[in-house]
Design a protein around this nucleic acid. Structure first.
Length: 224
DNA sequence: GACCAGGCACATC
DNA sequence: GATGTGCATGGT
């Protein structure tokens, strides 16, 4: 299939430029989960500060966060932005894990991707992207993560329409690429690497590793 | 100083 | 069901 070949060629071009990304940043599955919630609509550098605060305060555990009060938690994660709403979301997630598995995040993540998907999506504050990030990078189960960069990039290269929704873009990757956990993890990471540098609104395409692939530099800029 | 960032839930029409 | 809005800090 032409799309499958194109997607692999794009991956190889990005890989050649950026090298393996070794995603997700964050130390261990719990930090990956927390980072996935804190990074919502926020730059990762801000999230790292918040994660650093949690570590420094000695509360980087399920039980510790489960027993913190809202204001104390919000203060620690303040640098990640939206700190009040994210404190609630983080609490919702942590409470859910604590009630079913105590402090054992590995036990919580050791269930099928489909089960995790429906369970995570049932938690207020966890949507499709956050759930998929947790499933792929924390639980290590193959599901493709779609984010703003992915939608923009695919639209710019004419592989999707700007109005395509999350599931349509996700299906394009999952049905075109071989089901390879390492590939799916790194592909998303490569897209973010390209996106940060070349695929923001108004960013120049010059020098982009995907420059040689047919593209429209502004397509998808207004996609959600 | 303006714009943007690895979303999501909720209100309203 | 589709669209609009609130949430907030920090880098460019």
């Amino acid at each position: 299939m032409a799309t499958a070949q194109t997607l692999m060629e794009m991956y190889e071009a990005m890989l050649e430029r950026f090298g393996h990304q070794g995603w997700w940043p964050g130390d261990g599955p719990l930090e990956v989960c927390i980072g996935a919630i804190l990074t919502q609509n926020t730059n990762w550098t801000n999230v790292e500060k918040a994660l650093g605060n949690l570590r420094a305060a000695g509360v980087m555990s399920i039980s510790a966060i489960a027993h913190m009060d809202h204001d104390a938690l919000a203060e620690l994660i303040r640098p990640a932005g939206y700190f009040n709403i994210k404190a609630k979301r983080l609490k919702n997630f942590i409470s859910h894990v604590f009630e079913s598995c105590g402090d054992d995040i590995a036990a919580f993540l050791d269930r099928s991707a489909a089960t995790l998907q429906s369970e995570l999506m049932g938690i207020n504050g966890i949507g499709r992207e956050t759930a998929d990030s947790i499933i792929l990078y924390a639980a290590g189960k193959p599901t493709f993560v779609i984010d703003r960069y992915t939608c923009r990039l695919m639209a710019r290269h004419g592989l999707t329409c700007p109005e395509d929704d999350y599931e349509q873009v996700k299906d394009l990757f999952e049905s075109s690429l071989p089901e390879d956990l390492g590939l799916w993890k790194d592909y998303h990471a490569q897209i973010v690497a390209v996106g940060k540098q070349y695929c923001r609104p108004k960013a120049k395409c010059a020098g982009c590793p995907l420059e040689s692939f047919p593209h429209d530099p502004v397509a998808g800029d207004f996609a959600q």
